[in-house]
């Protein structure tokens, strides 16, 4: 059974996730005085990994952002056919994608991979994709996606959630509606409560 939630229901996953080939871990430790904190301690992606990534010839493919950026020219046809989705990890810079592809709506699917559920960068990335970069198609969270983060993901602009394989997606559905009337404006409900209703 599928563990994919789209909007408020379980659905099947038609996309093939493409991952970078595994290499021995190259960890970039803290570098220099002004540190790019989001890179600290996280894997860097090598040109060889990008070149060696195998992209299935047919069907809907969800590609690593770095692979798309490097191999964009060869993917134009498939992008035109709406066969290409993009995924990035929470520490990757969204701006590097925007630089080569300002119109994200060319992708039917953008997905954010969260390695550990406690990594709240995913919420800011969802917000930026929706509000800054005008992305209107399906926005998916995958990786360590658990039910107690769903409400926040939904409010941050996500509408697709691939629940971690060992958890029950059906049960997780209820958590999308943990709270009925949020205080602050966010991505889904843009207005704060005081602009939505008359409070005494």
């Amino acid at each position: 059974m599928s563990n994919l939630i789209y909007q408020n229901a379980i659905t099947t996953d038609d996309w093939t996730l493409v991952e970078l080939p595994k290499v021995e871990k190259v960890v970039r430790m803290q570098a220099g005085k002004v540190v790019l904190f989001h890179l600290t301690g996280e894997n860097t992606i090598s040109a060889a990994q990008i070149a060696d990534t195998v992209i299935p010839p047919n069907g809907l493919v969800l590609l690593p952002m770095s692979v798309y950026i490097a191999r964009k020219a060869s993917l134009e046809n498939r992008v035109a056919k709406q066969e290409v989705g993009i995924w990035l990890a929470t520490h990757e810079r969204l701006e590097s994608l925007i630089e080569v592809e300002p119109d994200l709506n060319r992708f039917p699917l953008v997905a954010v991979f969260v390695e550990r559920f406690a990594d709240g960068r995913i919420f800011s990335l969802g917000n930026l994709l929706r509000t800054r970069y005008g992305y209107n198609n399906t926005l998916r969270a995958f990786g360590d996606v658990l039910r107690d983060q769903l409400y926040f993901l939904k409010r941050s602009g996500f509408d697709s959630y691939l629940i971690r394989a060992d958890r029950n997606a059906q049960e997780a559905l209820t958590s999308l509606n943990d709270f009925t009337r949020p205080y602050q404006g966010a991505v889904d409900e843009k207005l704060p409560v005081w602009r939505r209703v008359s409070r005494k």
Partner: peptide, 14 residues
């Protein structure tokens, strides 16, 4: 207080 209560973007800060 109200704004920060269950603020979705800032639910899991560093």
């Amino acid at each position: 207080r109200q704004w920060s209560t269950f603020h979705p973007e800032f639910a899991l800060l560093p």
